[in-house]
């Protein structure tokens, strides 16, 4: 019985990783038309290094992910502090309001943003993408930092105050150092959320400013070469690294 279970888990892993491995391998295959047998070549990575369209959008994606991580982590951490340390009316409602950006299909959120940004004159492009990505990342930051706050007991701050700390000093001397791993974890999480985001970006990017996933999508739709495999491989490795580092700082498996 144990053997059977392990074999089943092996099959699940094969199912999960086969396409990813095939995708990565095809980036190293000579044939432009993905023809087999496999013949090793790095020509697609060389080609990639001169493909300004893909490189620019990749650069855009990284910049966007960094901005998203910084902004979402800052404002999300503040909200998490209030939600976990203060009691006030409407706190449960505010916690509930974190769910729509996570739970509503991105297609709906994305098209709603498109309408609203168009209607108010905010428009599309980098600033619109920042607004959208931060909004998607903030709830995760609040959840991750809020979980971290649970491990920083309120009586530590009280102990500091009984010894003469003002609330602000207690926060910087006690709470912040203890919370730091959670905040770093939340930032990595926000980075990954932004880097992997396609649907929202698809509706909010402008012809002059696209992200890598949007560029990959239009390539898939219009015709593509294994260069796409090469850049996809880099993207996958990037977010896998971010998540593995995150897993070291916080527990893996937060709800998506």
């Amino acid at each position: 019985m144990t053997r059977l279970g392990q074999i089943f888990l092996g099959l699940i892993l094969i199912f999960l990783y086969t396409p990813i491995v095939v995708l990565m391998a095809m980036g190293f295959n000579e044939s432009e038309l993905y023809e087999l047998p496999f013949k090793f070549s790095t020509r697609w990575y060389s080609a990639l290094s001169t493909n300004t369209e893909l490189l620019t959008s990749g650069f855009n994606s990284i910049v966007l992910a960094v901005i998203t991580a910084v902004v979402a982590t800052s404002i999300g951490t503040l909200a998490a502090l209030a939600l976990s340390r203060r009691t006030f009316r409407g706190r449960n409602l505010l916690q509930l309001l974190l769910l729509p950006p996570i739970a509503i299909p991105w297609l709906i959120t994305g098209t709603a943003m498109l309408i609203f940004f168009f209607w108010t004159g905010i428009g599309r492009g980098m600033h619109a993408l920042i607004i959208g990505h931060v909004a998607l990342a903030v709830p995760y930051v609040v959840l991750v930092v809020g979980t971290g706050m649970k491990s920083v007991r309120a009586d530590l701050e009280e102990a500091a105050m009984s010894l003469g700390s003002t609330p602000i000093h207690a926060f910087f001397a006690i709470t912040l150092p203890l919370l730091f791993p959670s905040i770093l974890g939340a930032a990595l999480f926000a980075f990954a959320v932004s880097l992997d985001q396609f649907v929202i970006s698809y509706f909010l990017s402008s012809p002059g400013y696209t992200t890598l996933p949007v560029q990959i999508y239009s390539a898939i739709r219009k015709g593509f070469t294994p260069e796409i495999n090469a850049i996809s491989t880099l993207l996958l490795l990037g977010s896998m690294t971010a998540i593995l580092i995150f897993a070291r700082f916080a527990k893996p498996g937060a709800p998506k």
Binding site: L156, E158, T166
Partner: peptide, 17 residues
Amino acid sequence: PVWGRNIGMMFQSYALF
């Protein structure tokens, strides 16, 4: 406020930093 009262306090959970 607490920080101006010069009290010594011990907590149930020790509350060591």
